[in-house]
Simulated scan of single mutants.
Amino acid sequence: MRIENVVKVAIALAEKGVDYQPKEGAVCPLCKQKIRVVTTKPWDDGVRIRFHRCDNDRCSIHALGIQIKSVQERK
């Protein structure tokens, strides 16, 4: 795969976002490892948005320094 395609896929996955579970947290959409929270936004109509960073040195999302969005729905 060409490097341009890898970058496009990594950006698209990070922007699409992942689900956030209160007990498990969230995982990187590319490497599937747990990701750490960088920013947490306030609740808005039963939804909370967080931004994460992947700490896996072998992950393209980490190498590009891209933040990953997660969404948590209030139950």
Rank of each mutant, 00 (worst) to 15 (best):
D19W: 02
K16V: 01
K69T: 01
D44G: 08
F51Q: 09
I68L: 00
T39G: 00
K16T: 08
N56F: 11
I61H: 06
R2C: 09
F51E: 08
V27I: 07
D57T: 10
D19F: 00
V9P: 06
Q72C: 04
K34W: 02
A10K: 07
Q67N: 07
I3T: 12
K16A: 09
F51G: 01
K41I: 05
P29S: 03
E73F: 01
V9C: 10
C59W: 12
E73D: 00
V38T: 05
V7H: 13
V47L: 07
K34P: 01
V18L: 03
C54K: 08
D44M: 14
S60W: 13
Y20R: 02
G17A: 02
C59G: 11
C54L: 05
L64W: 09
M1T: 10
C31L: 13
R58E: 15
G65W: 08
H52Y: 08
I68Y: 00
A12K: 10
K75G: 05
T40D: 06
R53L: 14
R74S: 12
I11W: 03
I66A: 02
A12E: 15
R53N: 14
F51T: 09
K8Y: 11
L13E: 14
V6T: 14
L64Y: 15
K34E: 09
V38G: 00
M1G: 09
G17V: 10
V18G: 03
T39P: 00
K69R: 10
G25K: 01
R2N: 12
K69F: 00
R50V: 08
V7D: 14
F51C: 01
I35P: 03
Q33R: 13
Q33C: 09
V18F: 04
V38W: 03
Q72S: 01
C28H: 03
A63D: 13
V9R: 15
D57N: 10
C54Y: 04
N5K: 13
Q33E: 10
L30Q: 15
A10S: 15
E15V: 12
I49W: 08
G46A: 11
H52T: 09
V37L: 12
T39H: 09
E24R: 03
K41F: 12
L30M: 15
Y20Q: 03
Y20H: 09
V37E: 13
E73M: 01
E24D: 05
L64A: 09
L30K: 15
V6P: 05
A10V: 09
M1H: 07
V47G: 04
D55Q: 10
G46V: 11
M1N: 05
I61C: 06
V38D: 06
E4I: 14
A12F: 06
V71G: 02
Q72Y: 07
R36T: 10
D55S: 07
W43S: 13
L30E: 15
R50F: 11
K23A: 00
D45T: 04
P42I: 05
K41Q: 10
D19A: 06
G25D: 04
